[in-house]
């Protein structure tokens, strides 16, 4: 078990955003969290990456309790997040953004190899390496966020809405790349509004509603589930 989330709750001021979430991610998996806006998907991600402290419960990563660990130290342990809304550094070039992804690393040769790999996955980024991140198109910024998250050579990659705001063709492309990254050995926890894509790519998935997990299963099971179909897949 790479990631174990055990009954966590989280508060935004007085508003309780998570009501006891428990989930597991095994090494090598793609696990998707699906649900409507405000269901707590992104909040769960922020709890795992350490951007938001949880009120109760426990988070374990690779067998170690990381519940109270600072976000930057979790990166060193092997958790990397491409945040919602992309969160790239707008004033830095594409190259500098990718260098930031490798901020905790010292192995120059390894960093160069990973940079090459990111440019193979996203040739567009290679073309724009000297351009400021803030001047990229939405799709390119998304690629940069994913590429940057790869640069820390994570064990677990958290992808928050990687398809948000992308054209249908780009959505296909980014999900293919996510599958490819996974097949190269990175475990992925994925938050998506695009349930169709997420469920067809994921090994397993959890459905969130108002801060609770209401359903879980393999991607295929959930794709066939009638209540999931009604609520998230837009087919009757």
């Amino acid at each position: 078990m790479l990631l174990e989330i055990d009954n966590i709750t989280l508060l935004y001021g007085r508003i309780q955003a998570l009501h006891g979430i428990s989930l597991q991610v095994d090494e090598g998996e793609i696990v998707a969290l699906i649900g409507a806006n405000g269901a707590g998907k992104s909040t769960t991600m922020r709890a795992v990456s350490g951007l938001r402290p949880i009120a109760s419960g426990q988070i374990r990563f690779a067998g170690q309790d990381i519940t109270n660990m600072r976000a930057d130290l979790r990166v060193i342990r092997g958790i990397s997040q491409a945040p919602e809304g992309r969160g790239i550094f707008p004033g830095m070039t594409v190259q500098e953004n990718l260098d930031m992804g490798a901020y905790t690393r010292r192995d120059r040769a390894g960093i160069q190899a990973d940079l090459k790999r990111v440019f193979e996955l996203f040739p567009r980024l290679s073309e724009r390496r000297k351009q400021a991140g803030g001047t990229l198109s939405g799709g390119e910024q998304q690629m940069l966020a994913v590429g940057r998250a790869l640069m820390s050579r994570p064990k677990l990659m958290l992808l928050d809405e990687p398809s948000m705001g992308l054209a249908p063709m780009l959505i296909q492309q980014i999900f293919s790349i996510i599958t490819e990254i996974n097949q190269q050995g990175t475990t992925i926890l994925l938050v998506e509004q695009n349930a169709q894509q997420a469920l067809s790519r994921a090994h397993r998935a959890y459905v969130l509603e108002t801060g609770r997990i209401v359903k879980s299963g393999t991607g295929e099971e959930l794709l066939r589930d009638s209540s999931v179909k009604d609520a998230y897949l837009g087919v009757a």
Binding site: G50, D72, V75, S80, G87, I88, M92, M100, R148, S152
Partner: peptide
Amino acid sequence: RGIRAVAQSPDGAALMG
């Protein structure tokens, strides 16, 4: 680069370690 990262996006910088 770390300084600029924190200036441009404190959360983003934390996620980079």
